[in-house]
Simulated scan of single mutants.
Amino acid sequence: MNEFGVNVFPYREETNHFCNAAWVVWTSGMAAAAGREGRLDLLMSLVAQQVRNSVMTKTFYEVIDYRTGKAWRWPGQLWHVAGFISYFLFGVLGIEYDERGMSFAPAVPKTLRDLRLDNLRYREAVLDIAVHGFGTKFRMTCDGEQVDGLIPASLTGKHLIEFWS
């Protein structure tokens, strides 16, 4: 791993769109795992790599050369934008789903403290999410009432979900 991303096939001598390349979407699971493990340093590094890449190129390229940071193949890839967004949903906010509903396990680096996400659609509900503070220990409320971290699948309408460190 370097400032350009994670080399997902580092043991191959050739350089092509798989070998010695950084792919945003392939590392979204790493961001989720970093959040689950409380590795705020690693999570922030993964986020910062992609912020750097998208700011430097003014778009989301599918392939970044791991050694040079040069974006050289397939610009404007919406699935890589989705991969980057998943860093926040599944890494920083720690969202998971099951048949009961949606749960959260936030892992918020200090740089991302006090973040807000509005109008996240979940089934028949629309959620505004506000994080107050940073870290991995949060108290969660829904419309001001303390909840145990689970948004039931049956929830409908607009709601404010807040996390307090």
Rank of each mutant, 00 (worst) to 15 (best):
L155G: 03
V25C: 11
V55Y: 07
T27N: 15
D143T: 03
A21W: 06
D98W: 08
L112N: 03
N53I: 07
L117I: 14
F163D: 00
N16I: 05
P109N: 07
P152D: 15
T156W: 07
L46H: 03
D98P: 00
F163G: 01
V51T: 08
R52L: 10
L117V: 14
N20E: 12
F90N: 08
S86W: 10
P75C: 14
S103W: 00
Q146I: 09
A107Q: 00
S165M: 10
T136E: 06
R12D: 08
W72K: 01
P106S: 06
L43N: 05
V8A: 06
L115S: 07
W26N: 08
F104Q: 04
E13M: 14
V92W: 02
R121S: 09
W74D: 14
D114H: 09
R12G: 04
A34D: 09
F18L: 15
R52K: 11
G94S: 05
V147A: 05
C19N: 10
T156A: 12
S45V: 06
E3S: 15
G101M: 01
D118K: 11
K137N: 14
L89F: 06
I95L: 06
V147R: 09
P152W: 15
L46Q: 00
F9A: 11
P10I: 05
A33D: 11
A48N: 15
Q50R: 10
N53P: 07
A107D: 01
Y11L: 14
M140K: 10
N7R: 13
G5W: 01
L120R: 09
T59I: 12
M1L: 15
F4V: 03
R123W: 15
C19M: 03
A153E: 08
E62C: 08
T68K: 07
